[in-house]
Design a protein around this nucleic acid. Structure first.
Length: 678
DNA sequence: GTTGCGTTTATTTTT
DNA sequence: TAAACGCAAC
């Protein structure tokens, strides 16, 4: 590999292979390139591929990194490299060793919907009749504790907060239930992997010997569990290279600990620190705006982004009347700019703080017939029909998975109503037997009538029959197809759909599960049902598997997404909308102290997504819960120096310079002529 | 077992 | 405003 294409700090980062390295990579400084080059460099130095581990947060990032490395060294040399997300890596560790922690190896993974169901049932027993609580918050408190490696016993009970109190009581029960169901949630995947590595010397040694060179992307987003996992893995050799940008840490609310990156040099004495400050993405004006905003944060590693390129267009800041006006203005500009610079729809991104803000833009885009993709929002695997189908598969793999079992027990209806289900659950609780065992032996529940008893027996028979069929991994797809058909899942969808159109959409979602399975079978040499479920559980919002090439971001469509999901991406033109107090900073986050910093970082992330043109918008007033309210511009706007800023309103579009106008007219006529075939 | 009505509540969400 | 949930009535 030729290092000459890299700038001096980039080269230094690639060459530093032994010992801890902190790579502070500013936005757009080519860090992915450095990581891939570093992997290639290690390979060229003679390090065996299977000794290199690169960890990312998203599947997408992992996939891209793998593709880039393979493109440079070829498939053969790259074989054996482990490039994976934290969760996939931890899952791997768990699948091999979780029995030491008292779980069975076929454990289920619970997503948020499963968690809510479980907590709801647990809370029901703890709360007096009729009293309600915020399940999401309970769950959030538990998750937060787990992210910080706080055990149920250590969970501090807060004063005067009934929800914290309740959470403290739910947490241990929740963990017990998960264990009884042979299930883990997303937080547990990391947590238990850490416990395994920490407490089981043999396991720890195995993995420590396995990986000799570790690389971590987006280190600023790691939480306590991830931090400890890395520490344990690199202990003997300390060949740990972490890459990140403290200025882009925006997941503090989710347990990410900025201290991990800020204290790296203390945690790993002798660490080398390299800063990447040259930006290859944005114009000078955009960078000036970004630098000016972020420098107002106190606790940070000083960095100043610079570019060898020119200033470019000024950053545009527009005042709009309301949300509709804002949407109109943005869509109008997309029209004009696309034409003017010959851009594609996918070159434009609309970024907002909260997902509800997408609405006005969606409506306007649809009205103007402009294709768009919405990133985030409701997740594919959270849809009912998909969850149902997967729940069936999960019960086949892990019959103790009671959340899934209860979900499908009477879906589609098969005559196991609430009364029957209650009797079964009570019997299971009374005898301390897993629910599935009770189902297999319905004779043992005397209060069951003949009909329900037969219904249960029929259900069990069908499940056991398919469990046997799935045990031979051959013909996985056919078996699944038969299974779903026999269950009548599709009929059930049409029966319960409110209108035929919705039914069709939901049936397509169900078909998509089989497509995902087909794609998995095709790709994996050794396809198994548990393997498929693992893959599916760890998938992100990048749509179900499909073929690798086609995903939301490769379609030619305007991209709409939250600031959080925009991290790591870039677009020629970015519209940062709703820059108002209450949105950015968000009203709920202007509580104590440092939270404002995270909001500012979010703003910084948004600004630095733009390559050529950045437009900042805010509205004078906005409807809130149905009421029109006056709005105040975000204080972050005032932090941008006026010499890089051009201010305007949505009404008066700054006029194009005359030569541009001429050019546009010329382009227009040229286009017309070619359309008319002249 | 289903449907509908009133009540409630409204961040961000890599896995 | 609107969506999601729980409860009550059919």
């Amino acid at each position: 590999m030729d290092l000459a294409d890299l700038n001096p700090p980039q080269q230094a980062a690639v060459r530093h292979t032994e010992g801890p390295l902190l790579l502070l990579a500013g936005a757009g400084s080519g860090k992915t390139r450095v990581i891939t080059c570093r992997i290639v460099f290690l390979l060229e130095q003679g390090v065996a591929a299977q000794q290199i581990l690169a960890v990312t947060f998203t599947n997408k990032a992992a996939r891209e990194m793998r593709e880039r490395v393979t493109a440079m060294v070829g498939r053969k040399t790259g074989k054996g490299l482990v490039i994976s997300t934290f969760h996939s890596l931890a899952l791997r560790i768990l699948r091999e060793g979780i029995e030491r922690l008292g779980f069975k190896q076929n454990f289920s993974i619970y997503g948020s919907a499963d968690q809510v169901r479980l907590v709801r049932d647990l809370v029901r027993d703890l709360l007096p009749e009729g009293e309600r609580c915020d399940l999401e918050r309970i769950l959030w408190l538990i998750s937060d504790a787990k992210n910080r490696l706080v055990t149920p016993a250590e969970f501090a009970v807060g004063y005067g907060d009934p929800e914290r109190l309740l959470a403290a009581r739910v947490y241990p029960r929740y963990q017990q239930a998960l264990k009884a169901f042979n299930a883990v949630d997303f937080d547990d995947i990391l947590l238990l992997a850490v416990r395994l590595l920490r407490d089981e010397a043999e396991v720890r040694r195995t993995w420590q010997e396995r990986f000799r060179y570790l690389m971590v992307d987006e280190y600023q987003d790691t939480n306590a569990a991830q931090y400890h996992m890395l520490r344990l893995l690199c202990e003997p050799h300390r060949n740990l290279c972490v890459v990140g940008d403290d200025d882009q840490s925006v997941y503090g609310w989710r347990g990410a600990d900025l201290g991990n990156i800020l204290d790296f040099e203390k945690d790993f004495p002798g660490a080398r620190v390299i800063k990447l400050e040259q930006n290859y993405r944005s114009t000078g004006n955009i960078l000036a705006a970004a630098n000016a905003v972020i420098k107002n944060n106190s606790k940070r590693k000083e960095k100043v982004l610079w570019t060898a390129g020119g200033g470019g267009e000024p950053v545009l800041s527009l005042v709009c009347e309301d949300a509709e006006d804002e949407a109109r203005s943005v869509v109008e500009q997309i029209h004009a700019e696309r034409f003017r610079h010959n851009l594609q729809y996918r070159d434009f991104a609309i970024l907002y703080r909260t997902n509800v803000q997408s609405r006005a833009f969606e409506e306007q885009l649809r009205f103007e017939n402009i294709p768009y993709v919405l990133i985030g929002g409701q997740q594919f695997f959270d849809r009912k029909e998909v969850k149902d189908a997967l729940a069936y598969l999960r019960v086949l793999v892990n019959p103790r998975d009671e959340v899934s079992l209860l979900r499908i027990l009477n879906v589609p209806r098969r005559g196991i109503g609430e009364t029957t289900a209650d009797a079964l659950i009570r019997a299971s609780a009374a005898e301390g037997r897993p629910l599935w065992e009770v189902l297999r032996d319905p004779e043992s529940v005397p209060e069951l009538g003949d009909k329900p008893r037969a219904a249960v027996a029929g259900f069990v028979e069908r499940m056991e029959r398919y469990r046997r069929r799935f045990r031979t991994p051959l013909r996985l797809l056919e078996t699944a197809r038969d299974f779903f058909a026999e269950l009548g899942l599709e009929e059930e969808i049409y029966r319960t759909a409110s209108d035929p159109q919705q039914g069709k959409r939901r049936a397509e979602n169900l078909a998509e599960v089989l497509n995902a399975l087909a794609a998995y079978v095709e790709r994996e040499g050794e396809a198994t049902l548990p393997g498929f479920l693992d893959k599916v559980s760890l998938l992100d919002q990048d749509e179900p598997v499909r073929n690798d090439k086609e995903n939301k971001l490769t379609r030619d469509a305007v991209v709409l997404m939250s600031l959080h999901s925009s991290k790591g991406l870039e677009f020629p033109q970015v519209f940062l909308v709703g820059l108002e107090e209450g949105f950015l900073p968000h009203r709920k986050s202007v509580g104590e102290g440092n939270d404002l910093d995270e909001e500012r970082r979010l703003c910084y992330v948004g600004i630095t997504r733009a390559r050529q043109r950045l437009v900042l918008l805010h509205a004078r007033r906005r409807k809130k819960y149905g009421k029109l309210e006056p709005r105040i511009p975000s204080p972050f706007l005032a932090e941008i120096p006026s010499d890089v800023l051009e201010q305007g309103t949505s009404e008066v579009r700054p006029a194009l310079p005359p030569d541009e106008q001429e050019k546009m007219a010329g382009d227009f006529f040229a286009k017309m002529r070619s359309m008319l075939g002249d």
